[in-house]
Design a protein around this nucleic acid. Sequence first.
DNA 1: GTCTATAAAGCGATAGAC
DNA 2: GTCTATCGCTTTATAGAC
Lengths: 211, 211
Amino acid sequence: MPTAATPTAAAPKRSFREQMHIAREDAIVSAVNRLLAEKGFEAMTVDEVAAEVGIAKASLYKHFPSKEDLAAAAMVRVMNRALDFLATRDAVEASPLEHLRAVARWTMEVQLAGEMPSLPSENSTLRAALATNKDYVDGLMAVSDRLGEWILAAQAAGAINPALPPIAVLYTLYARACDPVLGFLKGSGQMDNAQIVDLVLSTCFDGLRAR
Amino acid sequence: MPTAATPTAAAPKRSFREQMHIAREDAIVSAVNRLLAEKGFEAMTVDEVAAEVGIAKASLYKHFPSKEDLAAAAMVRVMNRALDFLATRDAVEASPLEHLRAVARWTMEVQLAGEMPSLPSENSTLRAALATNKDYVDGLMAVSDRLGEWILAAQAAGAINPALPPIAVLYTLYARACDPVLGFLKGSGQMDNAQIVDLVLSTCFDGLRAR
DNA sequence: GTCTATAAAGCGATAGAC
DNA sequence: GTCTATCGCTTTATAGAC
């Protein structure tokens, strides 16, 4: 019975093709992710993406209808990875402040690994595409909600400065994920990644002033 | 004596023309400055600059030989404005920490005014142009030296965390001049500029943690 | 120095064979 | 779905008249 009517026979075949398809798309999204982190959306070209993946540019457009969708897919994946990381923290016994520090540390490590896309400038075409991308917006909301809980709890416990509006704390954490200070210090060639992360974490949570 | 041989007669005429020339170039650089702040180097087009200034694109290229030189001129002007501001602080009776706070506040106000160019991504063609631009490099060094003195003095006085390498403090101040948190908070529409600056200054110097 | 007009190159996106 | 080849447009930069 070679027809597709038998689920037990058709499912594996379809699944295999789908897995190949997913694997290919994952390779594409990975390349886009790296290029977005390295040079940003405007400077990244679709030809570069195709060259890095090792396929023709036209093939890219069979998977993603536009450059914006290509980049949006990478942003969605980053957001999902963040959600995955947040989920791992649920099993950890720690204070809200410690959770927030752990998240900030994770984002900085992702950035030093060259896998944190730099945020698109305010009037980029990518911004509009992201704003109407349900997967991205949902992921962003989910991350923000989770972080918001920890922020409120940390402020209630007196660990985070209660005078700061929670939204300001949230935005600060997002901004530090792309903090160019990491690249500056890396470029100075005087420290290793662990030292850089510790330093920037310190300035973020403890400030420049002595305590 | 209408010839150019008489210095007293020739000098004013040349000076007038030069002033016109300088005024025109200043208008160009101002437009470039705003566009660099608004959308960054890659997304800014020379056509936009010409349209904003109100002259033909070819005329721009009589003043500046390339888009990179155009942008570099704007960056040099920002650097010189920073030097001017630093000079005004010499007349102010204040501690090194207060000087650093004042500088950070000034950069944030410039950014909220839409006049702080976003820093070029790491492998932008603008980076290479800036690295070989003597005026820019000299200005950057002068600013860094001046800030470096205050940083060292503030650390010696125990006002800035002495555990932080001075270079990390310097880079943090540079990064906060372009901090996207200002734009985020502005976009939330919940605060005025003064509140935003105070908030970000607080997180920069005092950190997120309660004191 | 300013303009109009255009060259030269790069880009996102598509056509059509296989 | 992948490829080669190309379209159509934008962009940087220049030529040449005035």
